[in-house]
Amino acid sequence: MSKFVRQLLPFGSLVLIICILSAFRPDTFLTMDNFLNVLRRSSVYGIIAIGMTFVIISAGIDLSVGSMLALCGMAGAAVMEAMGGANPQGASLVYGTIAGIGVGVVCGFLNGVLITKLRLQPFIVTLGAMSFYRGIALVMRDGQPINIADYKYLGEGSILAVPVSIIIFAVITAAAIFILRYMKLGRYTYAIGSNREAAFHAGVNVDLNLICIYMFIGVLVGIASMIQVSRTVSAQPTAGLGTELDVIAAVVIGGASLAGGQGTIVGTIIGTLLISFLRNGCTLLGISTNAQLIVIGLIIVIAVSVDQLARSKGKELQSTGS
């Protein structure tokens, strides 16, 4: 019940923003093209944010997703080029895509192993990884991007007029909701984040589950990365700078707590869309990208403080004293 009410707040603000923009810019905002455009742009961040939701519920954090985004793209594109020559086509694109996602899995695995086996804090490990992965992405081609002119399907293709990237985003969202609600991995994610010691004493294999969680976000970053490469038909070693912060913001706006044990996929999706529509709206209203940062910063703090307030109110009602 209270969970539902809390989620209503970000959702309400999302609806409010859409209403306001529809009223002010009906001709440019309220078009199918614009909506699809916003969703397409959301898909990259949204897919990563879904993985970040798992990580944050487990009381962890992954700061390396932006660098991973660049590294996966560069690796995937490099494989395409190596297999398909100057203008890769067909199978080489498929293999490159798989390779890019595979690199994400490996990166996530490394993060997970370091965090669990060396008992290091996720913040520290992924802070190091952020620099490390970015470094590799930059060194690969000496800071130059790799262009893959015909790699368009993920970014621009569509099935029955719905863009492929949005379909992927939707499928991943549904899968993540299912995992988090109906599978042991999801349940254990909450348990580990809420009280790691209690989960351990109840027989949960904490290390294995945490490694799975970091690999899961790795897979998602890999997928998001290939969508990103496809949208720009090139892999940029500087892609995804600052992405980690946008993604964490989306998750937190969606009601997750950095202390762990709390958060939902639906909340995260709402948080992602909130930020995307806000950006889009600002652009349509002629607010510069620089000024947009101010608006988004304010929204994050307001959203989280209202959430906190609602939470402490709920607590007081719940506690019966003893």
């Binding site: 348990a191 010691e197 209690a198 989960a199 351990f200 004493h201």
Partner: peptide
Amino acid sequence: KRTGLCLNLACSW
């Protein structure tokens, strides 16, 4: 509190 319960999660969980 420390090693038994996940306090913010549902009783059933």
